[in-house]
């Protein structure tokens, strides 16, 4: 027989399942439920869950450091290109895009810089995967495609909100966002992070595999 008092907060359980380390997620959840039903309050349960989630996030950063390097590189590279004018020397089409036939000109204008930034960031991801011994060409290809899809989605969805854009003086073809640059960097970094997460699948913990073998569906 269970009542509200004996059941821990379901949102806290959901948060724990998605944020705590995979290595001890199930055991920790069981321990928290056991202790909660024995003697503890909902406030205690939430405190434990938030602390475990923070530890889980730090553990994830430690394990997937190369995802974060990929995201940082991807978020910062367009700005480096923009301010140092390197792109003009590396890729001459960037300044002569209007001479190209449509739709290539449109692609170069809209997606040329993100595609080059994603390619360069992919080098960082490759090095990280090699160091961690998880390198697969399929991971790189998948991450690259997902990155371009997500960046395109973000890039073109901004056109739905024209009041967010303002003209750039001296450039009649481009507009810039009115939000501070740091938000754009964070949005771009999050997009790269999500792409790496989806593109490079996680390695399951041995205990989970053992359990799946022992308990067939």
């Amino acid at each position: 027989m269970t009542d509200k008092r004996s059941n821990p907060p379901s949102f806290a359980l959901w948060l724990l399942r998605h944020t705590a380390s995979d290595d001890w997620n199930e055991a920790l959840t069981g321990d928290l439920i056991e202790t909660f039903r024995d003697r503890q309050s909902r406030w205690w349960f939430w405190g434990q869950v938030l602390f475990a989630s923070t530890l889980g996030a730090l553990e994830t950063i430690r394990r997937r450091w190369y995802f974060f390097c990929y995201a940082i590189t991807g978020a910062v590279t367009p700005y480096i290109f923009e301010y140092s004018n390197v792109l003009v020397r590396v890729w001459p089409f960037s300044s002569h895009w209007s001479d190209l036939p449509w739709p290539l000109s449109q692609f170069v204008l809209e997606m040329g810089l993100p595609a080059i930034a994603a390619s360069m960031s992919l080098l960082v991801l490759s090095v990280g995967l090699l160091i961690e011994g998880s390198f697969r060409w399929a991971y790189l290809l998948r991450t690259f495609i997902i990155t371009l899809i997500l960046i395109s989605a973000v890039h073109f969805s901004i056109d739905l909100f024209p009041w967010l854009l303002r003209p750039i003086p001296g450039d009649q073809h481009r507009k810039s966002l009115i939000v501070p640059g740091i938000f754009v960097v964070l949005l771009l970094g999050s997009t790269y992070l999500l792409a790496a997460w989806l593109g490079c699948p996680s390695i399951e913990h041995p205990h989970k595999r053992e359990r799946q073998i022992a308990e067939p569906q």
């Binding site: 290595d23 920790l28 928290l32 434990q48």
Partner: peptide, 11 residues
């Protein structure tokens, strides 16, 4: 000690 810290140490 929070259970999360204990599992982190055990890990």
């Amino acid at each position: 000690v929070s259970l999360g810290s204990i599992y982190a140490a055990l890990g």
